[in-house]
């Protein structure tokens, strides 16, 4: 299999972001194509990287480590970016999506890359738990980007400004609708992810899997999940939701959730608190065994 490193796709993503930035001033078809090509090339490289690590760990990428989990999240975000850019090349989503993707990829370098052996024993539940969480978080991430796009467009319209250069932003009505759907989809997924996580922790009490109740990442995620749940209920109970208020709430809560997830993982790794279990082993060693 092709040997790739994080630098390969990180460089591609940086180039794609640069192309998006350049298009702010000089919007040409070539710039758009280059952004897509760099994005797609990075995605391919990242796919190889994740598969490579997965084959060494003998676990799906979602389960192998926090490092891989963040990279899977970034991978989903790139996929969403490519889809949106191919369907609407002038949406301006790349300008907000790439910084988030880059932060995820860079953060992945600072979190543990040790595998979680314990999940090997409950592989199906583990995959379900991690997939729900990653998809839910991707929805949150999308909601975050959409709400920023909404606020950007709202500010422009209130100030009666024309967009500098040929960049176009999606209209408020569409952004609001997509944002609403992103949250309404993400929260149930996150809920399922959190619930399955609790299920796994109950096994821990039986002595099969170590407990996660004291894990700061889990506690932080739980708090933000409650926040998102509140937003979800509020959205469902509104007859006509005021767009700017929804966008502001979404931007804050989603931003908080992302910062919490990524920040806590980086922090716990930095100060040596293992998010996971003592049974975790570095991937390199696992590969040798």
């Amino acid at each position: 299999m092709l040997k790739t490193t994080v630098v390969c796709f990180l460089a591609s993503y940086c180039c794609a972001f640069a192309c998006e930035l350049i298009q702010l001033k000089w919007r040409r078809a070539l710039g758009r194509i280059l952004a897509l090509v760099f994005g797609a090339a990075g995605l391919v490289a990242q796919t190889f990287y994740l598969l490579q690590r997965s084959s060494v760990a003998q676990l799906p990428p979602l389960l192998s480590s926090d490092h891989d989990w963040l990279l899977v999240l970034a991978w989903v975000a790139v996929l969403v970016y490519l889809f949106v850019s191919l369907t609407d090349g002038e949406s301006g989503i790349g300008l907000l999506m790439w910084p988030v993707i880059l932060v995820l990829v860079i953060s992945a370098q600072f979190v543990t890359s040790s595998t979680r052996l314990e999940l090997d024993y409950h592989r199906r539940w583990g995959i379900l738990h991690a997939s729900m969480l990653v998809l839910g978080t991707a929805g949150v991430l999308l909601g975050f980007v959409l709400s920023l796009l909404y606020l950007w467009q709202h500010r422009r319209l209130k100030r009666r400004e024309t967009l500098s250069g040929p960049l176009k932003l999606p209209n408020l009505e569409l952004t609001e609708r997509l944002n609403r759907w992103a949250i309404l989809t993400a929260v149930p997924l996150l809920t399922f992810g959190v619930a399955s996580g609790f299920g796994l922790s109950i096994f821990a009490k039986n002595g099969e899997v170590p407990a996660i109740w004291t894990d700061p990442v889990v506690i932080g995620s739980g708090i933000t999940w409650l926040l998102m749940g509140g937003l979800f209920v509020w959205l469902l109970t509104q007859k006509r939701s005021p767009g700017r208020q929804v966008a502001l709430l979404t931007a804050w809560s989603c931003g908080f959730l992302l910062v919490m997830l990524v920040g806590l993982q980086v922090l716990t790794s930095a100060i040596g608190i293992r998010h996971g279990t003592p049974a975790s082993v570095p991937l390199e060693k696992r590969g040798q065994s």
Binding site: L157, L169, N171, L172, E173, R177
Partner: peptide, 10 residues
């Protein structure tokens, strides 16, 4: 074109 269509989708 520049303003109404930036507010409404349809």
């Amino acid at each position: 074109g520049d303003f109404a269509k930036s507010i409404f989708d349809h």
